[in-house]
């Protein structure tokens, strides 16, 4: 009896909060048929927004993967003064509102700052251009890779690496042949999380990009702009694309997760 009530309450909550709203959106998106959706997504501005988003996301993923694996190795395999602080600071982005991220980057790298104007003189815009957007996206997704790799590194232990050393392998050889293969599923999982987070970033890029249509507009900014301008079709189509990506990400996450528990 109690079991049924609990189950009902849980499922009803999830339905009202997640499932039904999602279903309605899908419905509304395809109101005018799949053709209309496809046309909307193929419009030059939409396609450009996708391109910008992908570019920014891939750069952020690259940076955070290198940082993530490196930082995880440092934290798990080495001792150094300030390690605990270093570890805690990596989680800092979780506490920061995306808008604050944007503000923070503008204050240091904006056109009027020492750093920003120096780059500006070389012809490189940071804020209101792709570099700033990459930084903002990397900021918000920073902890994701590290946190996936750390527990796996801890679990596999250092003995295999020591065995490799006694067999003559150098540090790099050991990493390439022993350490990395052991963490590759964790890295894959972290990569998917980072990519999803980067594709979906809104608040930080809203501040940092200047929202220049056709230049620095990501697909999330595109959704906002078109919704506010009453182009519901365009907004829904782009939202659907993003939601579809999210669902694919979910699937991949669930497929990869059991593997990482191996």
């Amino acid at each position: 009896m109690a079991r049924w009530t609990l189950r009902l309450v849980a499922l009803a909550y999830l339905a009202l909060l997640l499932v039904i709203p999602l279903g309605i959106i899908v419905n509304r998106t395809f109101e005018n048929g799949a053709g209309a959706v496809w046309d909307s997504l193929n419009e030059p501005l939409a396609r450009h927004a996708f391109q910008v988003t992908l570019q920014v996301a891939l750069w952020a993923v690259l940076l955070n993967t290198i940082f993530g694996v490196g930082a995880a190795l440092l934290i798990v395999r080495y001792d150094f003064p300030g390690k605990r602080i270093f570890n805690a600071l990596i989680d800092l982005p979780l506490a920061v509102s995306p808008v604050v991220v944007g503000l923070a980057l503008i204050l240091v790298y904006g056109r009027l700052t020492p750093v920003g104007s120096w780059f500006g003189d070389q012809g490189i815009d940071i804020i209101f251009a792709l570099p700033g957007m990459v930084m903002a996206t990397a900021f918000v997704s920073l902890p994701l890779m590290v946190r996936e790799v750390v527990p796996v590194l801890e679990e596999i232990g250092v003995e295999q690496e020591q065995a490799a050393w006694t067999l003559g392998a150098s540090g790099w050889q050991t990493f390439r042949r022993i350490t990395f293969p052991s963490i590759r599923w964790a890295v894959a999982y972290g990569l998917v999380l980072t990519l999803a987070r980067s594709l979906g970033e809104f608040g930080a890029v809203a501040v940092v990009s200047g929202r220049i249509v056709g230049k620095t507009q990501t697909i999330t900014l595109y959704v906002q702009q078109h919704f506010e301008n009453f182009d519901k079709t365009g907004a829904y189509a782009a939202s659907f694309a993003l939601a579809a990506i999210a669902v694919v990400v979910l699937l991949i996450m669930n497929l990869l997760r059991p593997k990482e528990d191996r």
Partner: peptide
Amino acid sequence: FVFQHYAAFK
């Protein structure tokens, strides 16, 4: 070197 818990490359 041979380890107590083998340290096999899994």
